[in-house]
């Protein structure tokens, strides 16, 4: 009878291990769920950015204006604080006017090609941390779909 009053060493160890596992699980599951949500947002942001590039390729080369414009895509609402910009060309750093844009950076279009750089940026916030997807490509006169 005296033995039955307390717990054996094995029983105590098991309890400690079990409690440890439960604590570990409880601590990690919210993090894991957050990662799932983050990956979903990342994939969506990439889809939105790729769609913007495809849309630009359907426009005639001369009609693709230089400058920065916000992305208009209903799927941005699915991203927490989602926003984005499409930038055609690059700002010319050699001139004092910040609004002076050139189609392609000099170090990329080394031969003065008729091509415009396209930079699509999609921003959103996950777990209070800002996230960004950036896709860069070029659209040329007489190029793909042109």
């Amino acid at each position: 009878m005296s033995k039955e009053r307390g717990f054996s060493l094995i029983e105590s160890l098991l309890v400690v291990v079990i409690i440890g596992c439960v604590v570990l699980l409880l601590a990690n599951i919210p993090n894991a769920l957050m990662l799932v949500s983050k990956s979903r947002h990342m994939s969506l942001a990439k889809e939105i950015a790729a769609k913007q590039i495809e849309d630009k390729r359907t426009i005639n080369y001369p009609d693709i204006g230089l400058g920065s414009s916000p992305i208009s895509d209903a799927r941005l609402d699915l991203l927490p604080q989602g926003s984005g910009t499409v930038i055609i060309g690059v700002e010319n750093e050699d001139t004092p006017d910040p609004d002076d844009w050139i189609p392609c950076a000099i170090d990329i279009c080394t031969n003065g090609e008729a091509a415009k750089q396209v930079t699509v940026t999609v921003n959103w916030v996950d777990n209070n941390k800002p996230q960004t997807v950036i896709l860069k490509t070029m659209i040329a006169e007489g190029g793909i779909n042109q």
Partner: peptide, 24 residues
């Protein structure tokens, strides 16, 4: 998701390569 993003960046770069050559 990270790989997919990298893959998209690589695809856009590959398209840029084609465009650059097509424009001389």
């Amino acid at each position: 998701a990270t790989r997919v993003e990298q893959s998209s960046r690589a695809f856009s770069a590959a398209e840029a390569g084609i465009e650059k050559v097509l424009s001389g």
